[in-house]
Structures are given as C-alpha cells and as structure tokens.
Nucleic acid binder design. Structure first.
Lengths: 350, 350
DNA sequence: TTGTATGCGTTATCAG
DNA sequence: CTGATAACGCATACAA
C-alpha cells in the first residue's frame, strides 16, 4: 500500500538526529529551534518527501479540516434554485486551495434539523458550518454556538449572533425592479414573495412595499413557500382577482416562470398585458419567450467570500460583517410599458 | 470544553478493571473475550456514556468514514439539472444513518479533475467516491482505482472497471418518448442530444435512433453540451432548416424549455405545430405553458441505492451491478398529434 | 483469555 | 535558549 509506506515524522526525526517533537516545531515554524537543527530537519523532510498525515494531525489538534453546509429545503426547491451550485463552486474555489473539505448534509425526513447539526458536531466531523436561508429568530444560531462550532451566516441574523456574516442587499435588487416598473408606468403591482419566516424573503417583501409606496404605486403581496406550484397559484389568484396588477415582481425565477405559464394560460401576452420580473437570473430565464427580466446576484463570489470568512473565523479572527456588491437588474423582454387601461377580467385587454 | 471531558477508552478500562486493548475487542464484538469481562466492559461503557472518538478511530483504522462526490460540470449546467439535489438527498437518506459523511468537491478552474481525485485520496479524505456522468473511455476509473479508493459508478462504464455500478436504463425513457410520438403520427423527428463523449447522452441518442428506425420515422440528431444555449441553437437550426421535424426529443428538460422558447419565437404553437419532450421531469416543466411532456427518473432512489452499494463495497463485498426501475414518460401538454402536412418554412402552418 | 507495545502529529511539561 | 519526553485515543499485532 502506498499509504502504509509513507514516511512518518519519526523517520524525519531519526534522519535529522532529533526528537519527533522538535521536528514538529521546526516544520510548523515555531520558535525554540536552533537554525542549524531547523536546517537539518527541513532537509530531512524534503529528502524523505514527508507530508504530515492529516488524520494524525486531526487527532492531535482536534480539528477535522472540514466545513459543513446543511441544506434544509426539499430537493425540488433546491433543484429549482441556481444559487446552491454557484455558491458551492465559490466555496470550493477557496476551500480547494486551503486543504479544507466541504461536507454536505441534507435534512432528511425523520431526522430533524437540530439532530443534523448535532451529528456534524459530534466528534467534530466539521469545524464550522455555513448557515444559509436564515430564518426569523433562527434557532440554528444558538444550536451551532452551543455545539461549539464556528459558523458564518449568509446575511445578518435578527437574533444575537457571535458569528461573522456575509451579506448581499437583495432588497436593493427588488428596489431596482420596482423602480424599473415605475419607469414603465406601472401603477398597480404585486409581489409574489417567499415565506415570511425566511429573512431574505421578508427583506425582499419589505423592500418591495417601501419602494412601491415611495413611487405612489398600489401594491399587494402574496406569500408562498418559494415553490413553482405556489407561485403559480398566487399568480392565478392575482390575475383572476378584481383588480389584477399590471406587473408582478417575483421573489425567485422559478415562481416567475410558473407565473408566466399561468399568465399565458389565461390568454395574456407578456409583457403587453403583464410585466414580470424574477430573482436569481437563472440561465434558463434568458432562453424563455419572452426572456425574463431578473435580479442577478453573484452567488459564486458570495461563496468565495463566505469560505474565506469562515477560514478566518477558524483561525480565531473576531467576527466581522461583510457586505457584497448590490444585485443588478438584468432587463430582458418580460417587462414593458404598462397597458393603457387596467384590464377588467382575464383575456380581455384594454 | 465538552469534547475534552468525554470519557475515553482508558476510563472504561479502568472502571472495568481491564486493559484498553480488551475494551476495544469487547466493544467491537471480536472473539477472545470472556463473557464475564465482556459484560463488565459493556456495562462500564454504558455507565460512562462512552462513544469512540471518530478521529482516533479514523487514525487507527486508516479510514475517514467519508464518501466523495466530485462534480465536474459548470455551475450553470448543474444549476439547471434537478438530478443532483435529488440524488444527494438519496445519498443522505442512507449516509446519515450510517455515520458516513458526504464530501462534495467541485472541479474548479485551474485544478484539473485528476488533481481533485488526488487531493481527495491524499490522506484518504474519503474512503470512496461516487462516479457520475460517465464518459466514453472514462479515465477516472483508472485514476480512482490507482489511488486505492473504492467507488461506485452510475451506469456501467465502457472500460474495464473493478467497481460496482448502479444503472438506470435511460434508453428506455427515450424509447417511451419516441413510441409516444409515433403513436401521435409523427414521422419526421429530431433529437437534441448531449455530448457524444458522455455515456448516458450517447445511450439516449442511440435509443432514439434505433426506436425511430423501428418505427420507420425519419430522424436526425443534433449534438450539444447539454446547455440551454446550445439546445436553443440546435432547435433554431432544426426549425429553420429545409425539412423541419414535427417533433423534437430533448436529452434534458433544460434544453427542452429553451427549445420551446425558440419555437414560440419563430411563431410556432406547441404542440399544434411542433411536439417536444424533455428528460428529467423538472418540477418547472409542469408549470410551463404548455406543460412539458418529460421522461422521469427517480434520482433520489438512485442515490439511496448508490449509497448502499458503496457502503457494501467499503465493507468488502465483491463488485455487483444493479439495475433500477425504468424511467417513465410523463405525458403532459407539449406533445400532440402530428400536423397534417409538413411545414415548409417558419410561421406558416399547413 | 488478557496485557503490552506501537503507530500517528502536536504540544504541555520537564531537563539541560 | 535548545531540546527530549510523554500523553492524547483508538485499534491491533504480539507477547504472556
């Protein structure tokens, strides 16, 4: 076996004529080693091609050199979300050059969320975790802290947190979308939002309400679970209601696409009869007919910064709070000038 | 620190009045321990609430109790693919109850694929890997084997492999789609395929060609990289060509949606002028207008079986080859009777 | 049937 | 100021 024949620190010590402990000191650049000894030890290690055994190292320092990412949404919702693949790619951009490894855990039915973190913390399978999809009064902050793990949160929690955070102002993305619709003359708009219990969904909804108010628009908010099914249902309720909006701002692309399907099903033409905007700037969006106007965030950069931040947290740096670049609005074909007169009922235009 | 105060095997030995070595034997159910001693040791361990330290165990047995999944596609393509989230959920269903952990690695730019496996194998950060997206003459089989890792492949490789495999006959899914189109009277069909270098893409293309021939249909195949952009381009080439097909079978949902966008852009109505089928049965598909007819596979079950299989491989079971249930065709609105007469050019219908 | 020694890298403790 | 030693936690080959 290749691994069995790997040189150990004892081999290096023997070759350099010193003790194991001194080798460790020399190789980790610690003080208390004479220049001559250091030289000999480094040479011996180089000649033997020695690299420390991760597992032995892991045992003695009590760290696992791994970082956890717990995904708590259903596979369907994750599958629809382009965020995670890009975010994970960003994480890997940094971890792969730092010797850290990414451990993925999914909250499976029958195993509660807290148990998942507990399993990860047990034996320190991971040194820290990345907390995504922050919720109102998120219990995970306390759980993870109590478990003695490090963490980085995506966004600033609404509870006391000892952890660093990396944030993107997605409210700004929504503001851009509403501003754009205001420019196009829309006065009656709606927002199909995510769950009120999710911090970023709530933030988007709040930004929507505030911006619409600032423009003097009439605005409504429908709450969903972020799924295409509920996005479609909310859209149908909106469009079949008494005073259908002339534009709908969706809290993700997935619901926007489903909403577009409903609008077309009801005989409306987008953007002539109805403008819609998404959030995430899914690759698919640009290939739809009409191509989707959407808010774009740089998930990969977010991942890279989050990885860097947890690396620093593990190194003992005090908590800090970073803000990334604002999202941008990518204007495509699904938004256009508001119809002259409000539609009365489905299918009839002006 | 909670971890620092955990009882160790020495505590158990002291309490039971035996040596550390015997405790280890007793707790791992090995022979050579008298019933009386075994009893006392088990009792002592129970009373102390002792559990073995993962890291110490990992060091002495030379295993990491982790399994790797290397994703080699670009984030955009992964984001569009509902397979991974569901597959990973399936893996977790099994791993989470087995004490195994899933390590995710992405092939990042500047770090070659082989290096990624090498990093994972170095220090045995993982005990085994799951090989997805098999390619023609896939070099990973040899690399992983040479690295001394266990593995399970998704599908049977076209090269010699010492590893177990778990397969789904996606060719059958394509056959169902083509049969369905034949039933609807289509005689001129096309397939927008994935890369010829990918085994499952090639298998789908082959199943397409064979089934079309069996039905006496005229068939063409366009090769893409599985991306929406190339799916759209292929569709445009097909529909603007001399003899546009009346139906297109796509190798994934993502391209099917992009193709739908192109068809609509060219003034065609689906399925009146053109029928289309997808592959993956994305959640989004059912919310489009028209809702997408698509081939569905149970990715989560696939993940669970793959996890179980690699668990067995790690336990020393000889390689075996499993076949999962055939994919099914979910018929929705994007397929319909073939147009009476072939269209001549874009926009004009019979 | 049971005890002992060894392996693995780090670090606290002790000796020169 | 430099360096050696032992302990950490588990499994296991070997000795008794």
């Amino acid at each position: 076996m290749a691994e069995a024949s790997r040189p150990t620190i004892a081999d290096v010590a023997r070759r350099a004529g010193v003790s194991k402990g001194l080798v460790s000191f020399a190789l980790n650049g610690k003080p208390g080693v004479s220049p001559a000894s250091r030289e000999r030890i480094l040479a011996a290690a180089r000649e033997l091609g020695w690299t420390p055994s991760m597992r032995a190292r892991s045992l003695s320092v009590g760290r696992s050199f791994a970082c956890g990412l717990v995904i708590g949404r259903s596979p369907d919702v994750i599958a629809a979300d382009p965020f995670f693949p890009s975010f994970i790619a960003g994480l890997e951009d940094v971890f792969s050059t730092s010797g850290l490894v990414l451990v993925l855990a999914a909250v499976t039915p029958g195993r509660h969320e807290e148990q998942t973190y507990r399993d990860l913390a047990h034996d320190k399978r991971v040194d820290g975790v990345i907390l995504t999809d922050l919720r109102v009064g998120d219990p995970r902050i306390g759980i993870v802290d109590g478990l003695g793990l490090s963490a980085v949160t995506l966004g600033v929690p609404d509870v006391d947190s000892p952890f660093s955070s990396v944030s993107v102002d997605d409210g700004a993305g929504i503001r851009h979308a509403v501003d754009h619709l205001a420019d196009l003359g829309h006065g009656e708009i709606a927002h199909v939002a995510g769950p009120e219990t999710m911090l970023h969904a709530a933030r988007r909804a709040q930004a929507f309400a505030e911006t619409a108010r600032a423009h003097g628009m009439r605005a409504r908010i429908m709450t969903t679970d972020f799924s295409a099914a509920e996005g479609a249902a909310a859209t149908r309720a909106l469009l079949e209601g008494d005073e259908p909006p002339t534009a709908i701002v969706y809290s993700n692309d997935h619901m926007a696409v489903a909403g577009l399907g409903i609008a077309q099903r009801l005989g409306l033409t987008v953007p002539r009869d109805l403008s819609i905007t998404g959030f995430d700037d899914t690759d698919l969006g640009r290939h739809l007919h009409p191509a989707l106007t959407s808010v774009a965030t740089d998930a990969r950069a977010w991942g890279a910064v989050a990885a860097q931040t947890i690396l620093e947290a593990l190194a003992g740096t005090p908590a800090k709070h970073l803000d990334l670049d604002e999202p941008t609005l990518v204007i495509r074909e699904s938004t256009g000038a508001a119809p002259r007169r409000p539609r009365r009922s489905r299918g009839s235009t002006a």
